[in-house]
Simulated scan of single mutants.
Amino acid sequence: MDNKLLAKLPARELDLIKPHLQSVDLRYMQVLAETDEPINHMYFPTRGVLSMVNEPEDGDIVEFATVGNEGMSGVPLLLGTSTMPSRVFVQVEGAGFRADAKRMLDVLKETPIFHARLMRYIMALLNQVAQGASCNRLHEVQERCARWLLHTHDRVNGESFVLTQEFLSQMLGVHRPTVTIAARMLQQAGLIRYSRGQIEVIDRPGLEAAACPCYRLIIDQYARLLDET
């Protein structure tokens, strides 16, 4: 299992979960959960990136969290509610597993280790949201841009991925011209190659050095919480 929530589960629990998992492609811009609509499925990505966004009344889209193979979509179901006031869609295409929400909730009653991992994932996700809010207030756009590119790079196969300036602006909470400047500076420093929405990481250590400390804080929290037994 390439999804970290499913990986390393005891065989007994995995045997109970597997019949409810369907392999699916995650298509670019595919909506997995709509605002205030019932959540019918949980998704466990194995590659690619999901985006969780809010849409204020003025029509802007603001991303507040991303999900890769470390996590899942459908968190509200684990907290006893069937909807959320946000939208989840595929930002970078990939693949994963889909499970019927009601059936998976029933399975969780028989898989205590899996349930505990999901609860710790919620804590890690909350840490990501909180750290992101602090980062947006404290750090320069170029540092934040490097951080988001690293998070995306962690979740895809290979060194390149599609990420438009529109998505980058949503991720960073800034206007597109600001994103253009930040991406150009990273490219001029020889850290990335960016052309027509295609980003290639060409100096991973350099990009990590250019990112704010939030990148390391977030991934360390995920590693610590998901590695607990």
Rank of each mutant, 00 (worst) to 15 (best):
R155L: 15
L172N: 00
Q128Y: 04
G158T: 08
T46I: 10
N136P: 03
D25T: 12
P177H: 00
L108G: 05
L217Y: 07
I113A: 04
S82P: 12
A209C: 10
L78S: 02
D15M: 14
G48S: 09
M52K: 14
Q187N: 13
L125M: 14
P10F: 08
L5D: 04
Y215P: 03
M52N: 08
E13D: 06
L118H: 00
N54Y: 12
E93F: 08
D220Y: 04
L163N: 01
F114Q: 04
L226H: 04
M123Y: 05
V156K: 04
S134P: 00
H20N: 08
P205A: 08
M29V: 10
R147S: 07
S169Y: 03
H20K: 05
E166Y: 08
I218A: 05
H115V: 02
M42K: 01
L50H: 14
L78T: 01
P177C: 01
L9F: 09
L78R: 04
G94V: 06
I219C: 12
F44L: 02
L207C: 06
Q91G: 15
A183T: 11
R216S: 13
G132C: 05
L191R: 01
A7R: 07
C212F: 06
A146I: 14
Q170A: 07
D60I: 10
E159V: 10
S195T: 09
M84P: 08
R224M: 07
D2H: 06
G206C: 12
R193C: 06
E70G: 01
A33R: 03
K18P: 01
Q198T: 13
M104V: 10
F161W: 01
T229I: 04
P213R: 07
L50I: 13
R155G: 01
G132E: 03
I61W: 00
L191N: 02
Y28S: 15
R216L: 04
I202H: 00
R224Q: 06
C212T: 06
P76V: 05
H115W: 15
S134W: 11
E37M: 09
M123C: 11
R27M: 14
A209M: 12
M1K: 02
T46M: 11
S134K: 09
L163W: 01
I192P: 00
S51T: 11
E93S: 15
K109V: 06
Q188E: 15
L50V: 11
G96E: 05
L105C: 03
I199G: 03
I39W: 01
E63F: 02
I219M: 08
P19T: 09
D36G: 09
V174C: 08
T35A: 07
L9A: 06
V53M: 01
V141F: 07
K102S: 12
E228L: 13
D25P: 00
I199K: 00
Y194A: 12
I218D: 15
A33H: 07
V62L: 02
Q165G: 14
E228H: 04
G197Q: 02
A223Q: 12
L217R: 09
P45Y: 01
